[in-house]
């Protein structure tokens, strides 16, 4: 029931970034992707989320298991915090907006318009959306950007509780999330090399 990635290669803007990426994630596990800027963390996550096609390789994932959260939180400024979450609850066909607000300490802000939130509060709202989706696999791109220390700890607690409930989390980040039990995958060794002629990838048809 977990996520299996086999020999994955992905590209950004016609430029191959990563190749030969393989890993597995089982229920209750977390994996943190590390690597310098521009090494392809976001590209890998977007490929896993199905937003862009992989060049080669296989992604094995049960259907309807994943919730993706990118750099941007997808918050509508003119709606209130509760309305924002209620929208996603309706999309995913779940309930539990109140519980999610509680967990991320947003209850006091529930009726505030999202445009009046601070950057960190918006981020917490974005993370509350993950709870609302009810999906077991969280794919998170830099989840702790603009969070203060207390909120990072809160986030770590939320992820830990999610893992204990049989969930999975795949995160790209630079900083320590306070999740010592998470496995770490450094992407640097998977940097794509020059493609061989005739592999079918990339623009080499023109060379």
């Amino acid at each position: 029931m977990g996520l299996r990635v086999t020999d994955l290669a992905c590209a950004r803007g016609g430029l191959p970034l990563l190749e030969g990426v393989s890993f597995a994630l089982d229920p209750g596990q977390a994996l943190v992707l590390r690597g310098p800027n521009g090494c392809g963390k976001t590209t890998l996550l977007r490929t896993l989320a199905g937003l862009q096609p992989a060049l080669t390789g296989e992604i094995d994932l049960p259907p309807e298991a994943m919730a993706y959260a990118g750099h941007a939180d997808g918050i509508k400024a003119t709606l209130t915090v509760t309305e924002n979450l209620a929208f996603w609850a309706a999309i995913y066909g779940t309930s539990g907006v109140a519980a999610a607000l509680e967990r991320l300490n947003l209850r006091a802000l529930a009726d505030r318009a999202a445009q009046n939130l601070s950057a960190g509060q918006k981020r917490r709202l974005g993370l509350a959306r993950l709870l609302v989706t009810g999906r077991p696999l969280w794919v998170l791109d830099e989840p702790t950007v603009s969070l203060d220390t207390a909120s990072v700890a809160l986030f770590a607690d939320v992820v830990r509780a999610h893992l204990e409930g049989g969930g999975m989390a795949l995160m790209a980040t630079h900083i320590d999330l306070g999740l010592p039990e998470a496995q770490i995958l450094d992407l640097a060794p998977y940097k794509a090399r020059l493609p061989e002629h005739g592999t079918g990838a990339f623009d080499e048809a023109f060379l």
Partner: peptide, 10 residues
């Protein structure tokens, strides 16, 4: 374009 890309990667 492909050549420039290749150059940059090498």
């Amino acid at each position: 374009k492909a050549l420039v890309t290749r150059e940059r990667m090498a």
